[in-house]
Design a protein around this nucleic acid. Structure first.
Lengths: 204, 204
DNA sequence: ACAATAACCGGACCTAAGTCCGGTTAAACC
DNA sequence: GGTTTAACCGGACTTAGGTCCGGTTATTGT
C-alpha cells in the first residue's frame, strides 16, 4: 500500500494552529503589497494612503489585499511585524532595565517608556493599525498586557494585576497618546513622567 | 437719527461667544431630528442607526442633519446633553463624595466611579460620540479633565496633575472601557477597583 | 505530460459618512 | 404688504472601506 492516499488526507485535514502555507502566487502578491505600501509610506502619511492606492501601486486588485490581510488595520500591522519581533526580544531577553535583570518596578517603567518611544517613532502607523476593534486582541497588544500583568503581580501579588494593567496601558492607545501630544501639547518626557509617577506610587 | 441702522449693524456683527439664535425652521428641524433619533434608539442600538435612517425618520434631508450637528459624533452628543448637565451639577454642587465636601482623594474616586456608571448606562451611545477626533476636545471631556486635574493638584501640588489626569481618564475612553468589559470580561466593580487602587496609591 | 480541483485573482458592487450647490423661505426693513 | 437678503433646505455627488463572484491558475495525483 502506497502512502499517497494518507498524505493526501493529511494535507486536506486542517492542522490545528498551523494553517497551510500560501500558494506561490499568493505569497508573491503579499510581498508586492507590502513593498508597494512601504514605497507609498516614503512620500505620504499613512492616513493619506487608501487601500485603492496600495492596490494600484502593487498592481493587484483590491480584493487581493483584503484576502491576504483581512482589513486595513492588519495590513498596517504587518508592516510593523519586524519591529514588534525586535521589541519583544528586547523585553524578554534583552539588557535591563527593559529586559530581565532589573526589579519589576524598574522594568515596568522602562517598558512603558519604550512604548512611548515606539509611539513617537511610528505613532501614525500605529494609529492606522488601531482602526477597528481588531487591535485590542492582536498579538502585540496581548503581549503588552501580559507583560505588564506579570510585572505587576510580581511586585505586588495583592493587587488585581489584570485590571490595573488595562488602566496603565490605556493612555498608550494611539488615539489617547495623540491627544496628549497634539491637543494637550505634552512632551514625550512629560507623558513618561506621569506614567512613572503612577507606577512608582503603585509599586513602592 | 433713527436707531434702525445701528440695530441692523449690531445684528450683522458677530457677537463673540454668542452665535445668533437659529431661525424658526432650523430650530424646528433640530427638534425633529433629535426626536426621530430618540425614537430609533428605542428599537435599535446606536451603531445600527445610519444618518440616512435618521434623516428619513425625521423627514428632512441628510444635509440638514450635518448643518445642524456637524457630524455623527456631535449628533449623538446632543442626545446626552441633559444627562451631562445633570452630571456636572452633581459634581460641582451635589452631595459628597461626588460633590464638594469630601477630601480630594475621595472625590476623585467617586468621580471615576461615576464615569464608570455612566459608561454602563449609555456606553454604546458614548462610543458613537467618540468616533472622530472631536470628542477629545468636547465640553464634556474638557470638564472631566479639568475636574480631575483640580482634584489632583489639590491633594498633591507636587505632581504633574495635567499629565496624570490624562492617564487616569484614558481607561474610561469608550473603546478602552468596552474592551475591558467585553473582551477582558472585567466587571464594572473590578474596573472601579483598579482605578481606586491607582488613585489611592497616588494620593495617600 | 495531463486532468481535476481547490485556491486565488481582480474589479464590479454595496454601504455609509460627509460635501456641495441650486432652489426656497423666514426674517428684517421700509 | 412688498422687497431684499441671508440663512436654510434637500438630495445628488464624492470618497473610502469592505464584500462578492465569475474567470484563472497553481498544485496534486495519475
Amino acid at each position: 500500500m502506497r502512502t499517497g492516499v494518507r498524505l493526501s488526507i493529511e494535507q486536506h485535514l486542517p492542522i490545528a494552529g498551523q494553517p497551510p502555507p500560501e500558494r506561490a502566487d499568493a505569497a508573491r502578491n503579499r510581498a508586492r503589497i507590502l513593498a508597494a505600501m512601504r514605497e507609498l509610506l516614503i512620500e505620504r502619511t499613512p492616513c493619506a494612503i487608501s487601500i485603492d492606492d496600495v492596490a494600484a501601486a502593487a498592481g493587484v486588485g483590491k480584493g487581493t489585499i483584503y484576502r491576504r490581510f483581512g482589513d486595513r488595520g492588519r495590513l498596517m500591522q504587518a508592516l510593523l511585524d519586524e519591529r514588534e519581533k525586535a521589541f519583544q526580544a528586547a523585553v524578554l531577553s534583552g539588557a535591563p532595565p527593559l529586559g530581565p535583570g532589573a526589579g519589576p518596578c524598574e522594568r515596568l517603567i522602562a517598558f512603558l517608556c519604550a512604548l512611548v518611544d515606539q509611539l513617537e517613532d511610528v505613532g501614525d502607523l500605529i494609529a492606522e493599525v488601531e482602526t477597528g476593534q481588531q487591535w485590542l486582541v492582536s498579538p502585540p497588544q496581548r503581549f503588552r498586557r501580559l507583560h505588564v500583568r506579570v510585572l505587576l503581580s510580581d511586585a505586588r501579588p495583592d493587587l488585581d494585576a489584570e485590571a490595573i494593567a488595562e488602566a496603565l496601558l490605556a493612555p498608550l492607545n494611539a488615539e489617547s497618546y495623540h491627544h496628549q501630544r497634539r491637543h494637550a501639547g505634552h512632551s514625550p518626557e512629560r507623558i513618561k513622567g506621569a506614567l512613572q509617577a503612577l507606577t512608582t506610587a503603585l509599586l513602592t
